[in-house]
Write a protein that binds this DNA or RNA. Structure first.
Lengths: 158, 158
DNA sequence: GTAAAACCTTAACCTAAGTTAAGGTAAAGT
DNA sequence: ACTTTACCTTAACTTAGGTTAAGGTTTTAC
């Protein structure tokens, strides 16, 4: 345990992922390795944390591309510190807050709009082909706009 | 407007989707049409609402397969009533409530776990290769278990 | 009545996030 | 030393949710 370098199989086992997944992540630029004399991958222990973060991020709906972008903020020359990781998670937490708020808004419209008959009208905030809600980003702004719209939408029918 | 039958192009324009998308939905069994003498698709106005519901569902993260299953509960022989649609949306709202609760739980772990060093430990509730949280379903149960775990996890480090 | 617009079908292509297979090399165990 | 396990690469396959292209027919508009 806690040796200085890890083989791909050991990392895979420890992290509960396939070896092919590690190849895939490397190809996508999410993790890095060097090769030993026999061309086999070797990893720093740091990779375990990266994979853990990838998996945690995926669980909350963050794409690999977003993870990759976030990893760009980590130092390239030294092992990331606690502070580096915490900055990263703070950014994501804000994104998540916004996503949750957006979902709540949509959920609150769901019963109302599907049932009320306004769904096929262009003004309905839930059925909106242009997705103005999404275009405006997710967050507090939407909740306000949503309120304004719900007043305007009353008594529209397909 | 409000004519008894719709062509595919008119439906597409009205709903803000491509004609190819309507072909695709039909192929997947989400909407139905009949053909005129020249083999062109014709739709009942009811299809507009179905498409609206599909789009609304997708916006909250419901898959086409789930929409299809939900549509099975709609009457086949008559046009769905308000009550039919409301039953459908009520079911989805409950699912959404559960999903939102799950996301909130994960969000609450995010900063703590990514920063704290426990992420690569098998006991961490966020980084859990077996995803016991997800296996147990989403809902109130998880929040309780999560609380118990967060006590047990304090001071674990990779 | 003819030309343009809308429609038809089938098939191939696209992204994301991997998995599986095939054929070959390196390292480890006995 | 030899066999098994681990590793390598490349390429094809998977699901979801469509989009794009090609080649041909039907409607519509003038």
């Amino acid at each position: 345990m806690s040796e200085a370098t890890w083989s791909v199989g050991r990392v895979a086992k420890r992290c509960g992922v396939n070896v092919s997944t590690l190849h895939f992540y490397e190809q996508k630029g999410l993790i890095k390795s060097w090769r030993n004399s026999g061309n086999q991958r070797r990893y720093k222990p740091e990779v375990l944390r990266r994979i853990a973060v990838i998996k945690a991020a995926q669980k909350v709906g963050i794409s690999l591309e977003e993870v990759k972008q976030a990893f760009l903020s980590l130092p390239d020359n030294r092992t990331p510190t606690m502070d580096d990781w915490q900055q990263l998670s703070k950014d994501w937490q804000q994104m998540l807050d916004a996503r949750i708020a957006y979902l709540q808004t949509l959920r609150d419209y769901l019963t109302g709009c599907i049932g009320c008959g306004c769904l096929s009208m262009s003004k309905c905030p839930l059925y909106n082909p242009d997705d103005k809600l999404a275009q405006q980003g997710c967050g507090a702004v939407i909740l306000e706009q949503a309120e304004q719209r719900s007043l305007a939408d009353k008594s529209n029918t397909a």
